[in-house]
Simulated scan of single mutants.
Amino acid sequence: MKISIIGLGNVGSTLAYTIALRGLTDELVLVNRTHSKAQADALDLQQSIPFTSHTMSITAGHMPDIEGSHIVCLAASCPLRPEYKTRADLGRENAKLMRELVPQIAEHCPNAILIVLTNPVDPMTYLAWKISGLAKSKVIGTGTFIDSLRYRHALSQEVGIHPADLRTYIIGEHGDTQFPLISTATAGGEAMEDTPEKRQLFKETVDAANQIVAHKGYTNFAISTATACIIESIVKDAKHTIPVSCYIDGFCGESDVFLSLPAVIGREGINKVFHPQVNNEEQANFKRSSAVVKKMIADFT
Rank of each mutant, 00 (worst) to 15 (best):
D194F: 00
P110S: 09
V244P: 08
I171Y: 08
R87V: 03
I297Y: 05
L30W: 06
I270D: 06
A263Q: 02
Q46H: 06
I71G: 05
Q277L: 07
Q39P: 05
K136N: 11
F251T: 06
S224I: 05
Y17N: 00
A208F: 08
S53A: 13
S57A: 12
N32F: 01
A185W: 09
Y17E: 12
A42S: 14
G23I: 03
D122T: 04
S57Q: 10
Q104Y: 01
A60Y: 07
K198Y: 13
S36E: 15
D176Y: 00
V278R: 13
N271F: 09
V206F: 00
P50D: 04
N32M: 05
E107D: 03
T25F: 03
D194T: 14
E268P: 08
K85M: 10
I297V: 14
F286N: 08
R267E: 13
V121P: 06
C78H: 07
E190H: 14
S255N: 14
K85N: 05
H174S: 13
S132L: 02
K37G: 09
A238T: 10
H162P: 00
I248M: 11
M192V: 14
D26C: 08
H70L: 03
V29H: 04
V102Y: 04
D194Y: 02
M98N: 05
M63L: 15
N285C: 15
S148H: 09
E254M: 14
F274P: 03
R99I: 08
P79Y: 11
N111M: 00
D147C: 00
A20P: 03
E107Y: 11
E158T: 03
I265H: 12
A263M: 05
A60G: 10
D89E: 04
T34V: 06
V72F: 02
V72L: 02
N285G: 04
G266D: 06
D41L: 15
K37I: 12
I115V: 15
A106T: 03
N279Y: 10
I58G: 07
K216C: 12
D26K: 12
H70W: 06
D176R: 02
S224P: 00
L97Q: 09
K272A: 06
S233A: 13
A208D: 01
I115L: 15
G141A: 11
S245T: 12
N210G: 12
L8M: 11
E193P: 03
T219L: 05
T184G: 08
N280M: 07
S260K: 12
H35C: 01
I234N: 09
N32A: 13
I223C: 01
S137K: 13
I115P: 06
L43I: 00
I242S: 01
D207S: 12
V11T: 15
D147R: 07
S148K: 02
G68N: 05
H108E: 09
T86Q: 02
I297L: 00
P79N: 09
T18C: 10
F179S: 02
I161C: 11
I171G: 07
R87A: 14
L28T: 01
S290G: 13
